Computed example of a mutant assay.
Amino acid sequence: MSLELPSPIADYVEANARLDLDGMMKTFAADAVLLDNGKRFEGRAEIRTLLQEMVVDLKAIFTPDALRREDDVVVFEGPAHGDFPGSPIRFTYRVTLDGEAIKTMDVSA
Protein backbone atom coordinates (compact mmCIF):
# COMPACT_ATOMS: atom_id res chain seq x y z
CA MET A 1 0.00 0.00 0.00
CA SER A 2 1.36 3.39 -0.97
CA LEU A 3 0.38 6.17 1.42
CA GLU A 4 0.43 9.91 0.66
CA LEU A 5 2.68 10.89 3.57
CA PRO A 6 3.77 14.53 3.92
CA SER A 7 7.34 14.89 2.65
CA PRO A 8 9.18 15.12 6.01
CA ILE A 9 7.39 11.98 7.20
CA ALA A 10 7.96 10.16 3.91
CA ASP A 11 11.66 11.11 4.11
CA TYR A 12 11.84 9.79 7.69
CA VAL A 13 10.19 6.48 6.70
CA GLU A 14 12.49 6.09 3.69
CA ALA A 15 15.60 6.80 5.80
CA ASN A 16 14.36 4.36 8.44
CA ALA A 17 14.04 1.63 5.79
CA ARG A 18 17.76 2.13 5.07
CA LEU A 19 18.60 2.42 8.82
CA ASP A 20 20.10 5.79 7.85
CA LEU A 21 20.40 7.72 11.12
CA ASP A 22 21.57 10.96 9.47
CA GLY A 23 18.68 10.76 7.00
CA MET A 24 16.16 10.28 9.81
CA MET A 25 17.65 13.18 11.77
CA LYS A 26 17.41 15.58 8.81
CA THR A 27 13.63 15.44 9.07
CA PHE A 28 13.47 16.87 12.61
CA ALA A 29 13.31 20.54 13.59
CA ALA A 30 16.19 21.69 15.81
CA ASP A 31 13.84 21.96 18.81
CA ALA A 32 11.80 18.83 18.03
CA VAL A 33 10.32 16.64 20.76
CA LEU A 34 9.94 12.88 20.47
CA LEU A 35 7.74 10.96 22.90
CA ASP A 36 8.48 7.24 22.91
CA ASN A 37 5.89 5.30 24.90
CA GLY A 38 5.63 8.20 27.33
CA LYS A 39 9.36 9.01 27.63
CA ARG A 40 10.30 12.51 26.43
CA PHE A 41 13.34 13.27 24.26
CA GLU A 42 14.00 16.94 23.42
CA GLY A 43 16.26 18.32 20.71
CA ARG A 44 18.33 16.60 18.08
CA ALA A 45 21.01 15.21 20.43
CA GLU A 46 18.52 13.31 22.61
CA ILE A 47 16.49 12.16 19.60
CA ARG A 48 19.64 10.99 17.81
CA THR A 49 20.70 8.88 20.81
CA LEU A 50 17.25 7.32 21.03
CA LEU A 51 17.09 6.51 17.32
CA GLN A 52 20.58 5.03 17.37
CA GLU A 53 19.75 2.73 20.29
CA MET A 54 16.13 1.83 19.53
CA VAL A 55 16.03 1.90 15.73
CA VAL A 56 19.45 1.49 14.12
CA ASP A 57 21.02 -0.85 16.70
CA LEU A 58 17.89 -3.04 16.77
CA LYS A 59 17.42 -2.86 12.99
CA ALA A 60 13.84 -1.71 13.62
CA ILE A 61 12.23 -0.93 10.28
CA PHE A 62 8.75 0.59 10.36
CA THR A 63 6.34 0.16 7.45
CA PRO A 64 3.25 2.38 7.65
CA ASP A 65 0.04 0.85 6.34
CA ALA A 66 -2.61 3.30 7.61
CA LEU A 67 -2.81 7.09 7.56
CA ARG A 68 -5.26 9.67 8.85
CA ARG A 69 -5.30 13.30 9.97
CA GLU A 70 -6.64 14.60 13.25
CA ASP A 71 -6.70 18.39 12.84
CA ASP A 72 -3.01 19.37 12.53
CA VAL A 73 -1.71 15.93 13.57
CA VAL A 74 -0.70 13.30 11.01
CA VAL A 75 -1.38 9.83 12.42
CA PHE A 76 0.10 6.77 10.78
CA GLU A 77 0.35 3.17 11.89
CA GLY A 78 2.06 -0.03 10.92
CA PRO A 79 4.38 -2.82 11.98
CA ALA A 80 8.05 -2.54 12.87
CA HIS A 81 10.27 -5.55 12.29
CA GLY A 82 13.72 -5.92 13.78
CA ASP A 83 16.03 -7.59 16.26
CA PHE A 84 13.88 -7.03 19.35
CA PRO A 85 11.55 -9.20 21.46
CA GLY A 86 8.03 -9.45 20.08
CA SER A 87 8.97 -8.42 16.53
CA PRO A 88 6.95 -7.41 14.66
CA ILE A 89 5.21 -4.87 16.87
CA ARG A 90 2.51 -2.50 15.61
CA PHE A 91 3.21 1.17 16.30
CA THR A 92 1.20 4.37 16.04
CA TYR A 93 2.99 7.62 15.20
CA ARG A 94 1.37 11.00 15.85
CA VAL A 95 3.32 13.81 14.17
CA THR A 96 3.01 17.57 13.98
CA LEU A 97 4.96 19.47 11.37
CA ASP A 98 6.60 22.88 11.30
CA GLY A 99 6.90 23.62 7.60
CA GLU A 100 9.12 20.89 6.16
CA ALA A 101 10.30 19.55 9.51
CA ILE A 102 8.95 17.24 12.19
CA LYS A 103 8.14 19.33 15.27
CA THR A 104 6.72 16.56 17.50
CA MET A 105 6.60 12.80 17.12
CA ASP A 106 4.66 10.67 19.60
CA VAL A 107 5.29 6.92 19.17
CA SER A 108 3.30 4.25 20.97
CA ALA A 109 2.93 0.50 20.67
Rank of each mutant, 00 (worst) to 15 (best):
S87H: 07
P6V: 13
D71S: 11
M54V: 08
A32R: 12
M1C: 10
D72Y: 02
V95G: 03
G38I: 05
T49N: 04
A45E: 15
V56Q: 06
V73M: 05
S87T: 13
D106Y: 00
I102D: 01
A60Q: 08
H81A: 07
F41P: 04
V95S: 03
I9Q: 04
D98Q: 08
G43H: 08
D31W: 13
E42G: 09
V95K: 02
L58K: 15
S2Y: 13
L58P: 01
P85R: 12
R48C: 04
D22C: 07
Y12E: 06
R18M: 00
S7L: 14
F41H: 12
F76V: 03
A80W: 01
F76L: 09
L97E: 02
L58Y: 10
A10E: 13
E4K: 15
D11T: 10
F28Q: 13
G43W: 09
N37H: 13
T104G: 00
P88Y: 07
K26G: 14
R18F: 01
S2Q: 15
V33A: 15
S108C: 04
L5S: 11
E70C: 08
L5Y: 11
T63S: 11
V56C: 07
H81D: 07
T49Y: 01
D36E: 13
V56H: 09
D65Q: 09
T63I: 08
M54K: 12
R44D: 09
V33C: 13
R90G: 05
P88G: 07
P64C: 05
K103L: 02
V55D: 03
E53W: 01
I9P: 06
V56F: 07
